[in-house]
Computed example of a mutant assay.
Amino acid sequence: MPVNAALKTYLETRRSIPAFQMSEPGPSRPEIEEMLRLASRVPDHGKLAPWRFIVYAGAERERISQELAKVAMANKPDMDDEMIAVEHSRLTRAPVVIAVISRAAPHVKIPEWEQVLSAGAVCLNLLMAANALGYAANWLSEWFAFDESVHPLLGVAAGERVAGFIHIGTPKMHPGERPRPDLADIVTFAGE
């Protein structure tokens, strides 16, 4: 089978860029829609589409960040100034943030675990789609992914879970390589 050299090189060098190291320009709406079309092409047993997207862009990122900061400060009143600044910028570090929402639920034929894994595959595909269109991307979860009291603010419905927040923008810098696991530590060949 012929090797797709460009894809192989991409997979060998793929890196996430921290959200705080992103800036404008971010993707346009047509680019976002293309990313979401690409991200949706994942294994999906039963064709359930057990996930959906919420796109945070423009002034809405600032509004939600301010509301999240109020909740964070109420939950932790002794927060230092540096963390307060972080809380105020949760969704404004990158020009666009896309939440991948898992809608995994019991099903007569499709295990819930497979549905959850499908949402994870969507997150990775969204990272790769952003990269394919020339943008940096970072998959984060953050505290508010797990705090159901703020889910209505984020647009997350009851029974849904956040698989990740994908931050997308233009990189301010290019990171170096990071340590990767040695295959000998993570691979078992059955029968050997």
Rank of each mutant, 00 (worst) to 15 (best):
A5D: 08
L7C: 02
E12H: 11
E12M: 14
S16G: 01
S16E: 08
I17H: 05
M22C: 03
M22T: 02
R29W: 11
I32V: 15
I32E: 01
I32Y: 06
I32D: 00
R41W: 12
V42S: 01
V42K: 03
D44K: 08
A57N: 03
A57R: 12
R63Q: 12
Q66E: 14
A69N: 03
K70C: 02
K70Q: 13
M73C: 08
M73K: 08
P77A: 09
E87K: 08
E87L: 00
H88L: 13
S89D: 13
L91R: 03
L91S: 02
T92L: 08
R93W: 10
A94T: 01
A99K: 05
A99R: 05
A105V: 09
Q115S: 05
L117T: 04
V122P: 00
L127E: 03
A132L: 02
L133R: 15
A137Y: 04
N138F: 14
N138L: 06
S141E: 12
S141M: 12
E142Q: 13
H151G: 02
P152R: 11
V156N: 00
A157Q: 15
A158Y: 02
E160W: 09
P171N: 09
M173R: 14
E177C: 03
E177A: 15
R178G: 00
L183A: 10
A184C: 01
I186D: 01
A190I: 10
